[in-house]
Measured scan of single mutants.
Amino acid sequence: MAAGGDHGSPDSYRSPLASRYASPEMCFVFSDRYKFRTWRQLWLWLAEAEQTLGLPITDEQIQEMKSNLENIDFKMAAEEEKRLRHDVMAHVHTFGHCCPKAAGIIHLGATSCYVGDNTDLIILRNALDLLLPKLARVISRLADFAKERASLPTLGFTHFQPAQLTTVGKRCCLWIQDLCMDLQNLKRVRDDLRFRGVKGTTGTQASFLQLFEGDDHKVEQLDKMVTEKAGFKRAFIITGQTYTRKVDIEVLSVLASLGASVHKICTDIRLLANLKEMEEPFEKQQIGSSAMPYKRNPMRSERCCSLARHLMTLVMDPLQTASVQWFERTLDDSANRRICLAEAFLTADTILNTLQNISEGLVVYPKVIERRIRQELPFMATENIIMAMVKAGGSRQDCHEKIRVLSQQAASVVKQEGGDNDLIERIQVDAYFSPIHSQLDHLLDPSSFTGRASQQVQRFLEEEVYPLLKPYESVMKVKAELCL
């Protein structure tokens, strides 16, 4: 049975990233139509530049190519590739079939990587351009969430054990800070992308030097003109047959890092959902379990974690691919890159769409948070109580021993009897502590235990987050809708 299948058929496997999760716009960027249309555009740009620099290419040939950029006979191309065992030459023939007058000058002087690699770089750039505003929107939604809850005390956790208090907004800023680093890295790697350009079979530009009869300047002009037509500021000066596969490492490393950030955020949300302090959106008709109707599973956060793990592992592909590119190139890269580049971007696209949807509907339960604080705060307040007693004339050592005994009794009630923490009640009825009984409410005010959390939130948002989001103001209103 021949390899390949009808990918629109229910009898043929289709990647869930495309069929179930990723956005239509990201799927289109990695589609065959987008790819092969870009090949034709690159052939047109090459012909236009070659004509401008004096090669015998007519206006009629150029116009014929322009008129057929979208006229792609995919069936013919597939048949040609089956016959020739070469995808680029299959599309040269297919393009030439609908451009008979231009057929002889299509791909003039070029090698397969002229269309293959340059198209990949265009796709990487455009895919990054799709991700950047999506990530900015996630940051914006979380920034709104953090600002609104900047002063809401909550129990902090280290080692997932109760620690000092923080605020809900401050905790959210930990998430935002990681995503801001990801946004900066995505922008950097996007701006650092260079075009492969017009380089020939081993990167020496020998074929173009021959076409222009040894004119170095025209060869350099050709490279520059096509690079500018493709919208790049610069091209690699040095290439082998391909652009260095280190570029793929750079791009997928940034995406993998984004995956790590999203995994951490969504894990926190899942843990908070278990504590009943916070939940992701839950639709009115949504079913959490087929057997347990009360369940409210954090399905979206779980999906993000599941896909983020996949995204983090994909960076190993370009690392290994770059390491086995012998001399000017081997074909070890080809099949692998067809999979890992598309999957990385479709996965990143999915987790950003999902995280935006989550961040637009996060639900906080202040009463649950308050109750958990009441359970733990008495123990945390013991040092403040000791200091207040010393100020009232008591002995630190005597007070410490009193607190120690009462704390152990209260802990026994919590752990052995399943009761509430009654340390404060014990202190309130103990005559030894009568000098500070009137101060206990103040000493137990949760806001006095959150330090500068709310001020940190305000400063972080104003100095770091809002300036970073400013270039994306025009796209901030787009909502994230999930079908599944």
Rank of each mutant, 00 (worst) to 15 (best):
W43C: 00
G361T: 13
G104N: 13
T204E: 01
A453Y: 04
L152S: 08
T330D: 02
S15K: 05
H159W: 01
D223I: 00
R404H: 06
G200K: 00
Q375K: 04
A381G: 04
G231V: 05
N68K: 11
T38H: 03
E81Q: 08
K101D: 15
S412E: 14
L44C: 12
I105K: 15
M387V: 08
S31A: 13
L183I: 11
A342C: 12
L46R: 01
S474Q: 15
C180P: 01
T347L: 14
L152M: 11
I403D: 02
L55P: 01
T227A: 14
S112R: 00
S448R: 14
I265F: 14
K470G: 12
A308W: 03
P366W: 06
K391Q: 13
I351Y: 00
K229I: 04
G96F: 06
N353L: 13
L406Y: 12
P471K: 15
Q439R: 07
R296G: 02
I358C: 15
S19A: 08
S257G: 11
E81K: 00
D333P: 03
G96L: 07
G5Y: 13
Y13R: 09
T321S: 08
D223Y: 00
W43A: 00
R329Q: 00
P366I: 04
L155N: 01
Q161M: 03
E401V: 04
D182V: 02
G259R: 00
F282T: 07
L319T: 00
H93S: 15
W326C: 05
T450W: 03
V138K: 06
Q63S: 09
T38L: 07
D191V: 08
N71S: 09
P298A: 12
L131Y: 06
R338W: 01
L186R: 01
C305G: 08
G231L: 06
M26T: 06
S454I: 10
N118V: 00
I436V: 08
D268S: 11
K391P: 07
R196K: 10
M299G: 06
V364P: 08
G156N: 02
G109L: 01
L314K: 08
V457E: 04
N274P: 05
S334H: 05
L17C: 15
I249Q: 05
I403F: 07
A260R: 03
V92Q: 00
L128A: 13
G240A: 12
F433Q: 03
D349W: 04
A431S: 11
R426M: 09
C266M: 14
E50R: 00
G169W: 03
R374A: 07
P318A: 10
G8A: 15
S447I: 13
L461F: 07
K477T: 15
H310K: 11
P318W: 05
Q320R: 03
A348Q: 02
S438G: 09
F282K: 07
I123K: 06
V315C: 11
S290F: 02
A291P: 03
K402Y: 07
A49L: 01
G4Y: 15
L53D: 00
H7L: 13
E302C: 02
P100K: 12
Y365C: 12
D192V: 08
N71W: 10
D182G: 03
L275A: 12
V189Y: 07
N353Y: 05
D59V: 09
A291C: 04
S412N: 14
A230L: 03
L179W: 05
E417S: 10
N357R: 04
R303W: 00
R137Q: 14
L311M: 13
D87A: 02
Q397I: 08
A146P: 01
W326I: 09
Y114A: 03
M278S: 04
G451F: 02
V138I: 13
E60W: 06
A163H: 00
A22L: 09
G156T: 02
T202R: 01
R33P: 08
G203V: 01
S301M: 13
P10K: 15
K233G: 12
E462R: 08
L179T: 12
T119C: 15
A22R: 10
S207G: 14
S140M: 15
T267N: 09
Q210I: 14
E80S: 13
C27Y: 12
E417T: 07
Q428E: 10
E250C: 12
T350E: 14
F327V: 13
S448A: 14
I424M: 14
D215Q: 14
H442D: 14
I123F: 04
R137F: 10
E383T: 03
K170T: 01
D73S: 10
S67A: 14
C173L: 04
R337Y: 03
E25P: 10
V405D: 15
I424N: 08
T111N: 04
P10I: 15
T52S: 11
N68G: 10
L152F: 07
E370A: 08
M225T: 13
L255E: 01
P56S: 09
L17R: 01
L152R: 04
E148R: 10
R329D: 00
V262R: 01
R194W: 07
L132S: 14
R171P: 04
L135W: 02
H217D: 09
S438A: 14
G5D: 12
S407W: 00
Q409H: 08
K224F: 13
K199S: 11
N384T: 10
H263V: 06
T354Q: 13
I369N: 11
W39R: 00
R270G: 02
L46N: 07
R234V: 07
R459C: 11
L44Q: 15
G156P: 03
L272P: 04
V138G: 09
S289D: 01
N71E: 12
K218V: 07
K66T: 11
A342E: 06
I351L: 13
R40W: 01
V92A: 14
N353E: 14
F232S: 03
K66F: 07
F212I: 11
E60P: 10
A206H: 10
F160L: 07
S334K: 03
I176H: 02
L482T: 15
G8S: 15
I105Y: 08
A2T: 14
R371V: 02
N118R: 00
Y34W: 09
K199V: 04
P133E: 09
A2Q: 15
E213C: 14
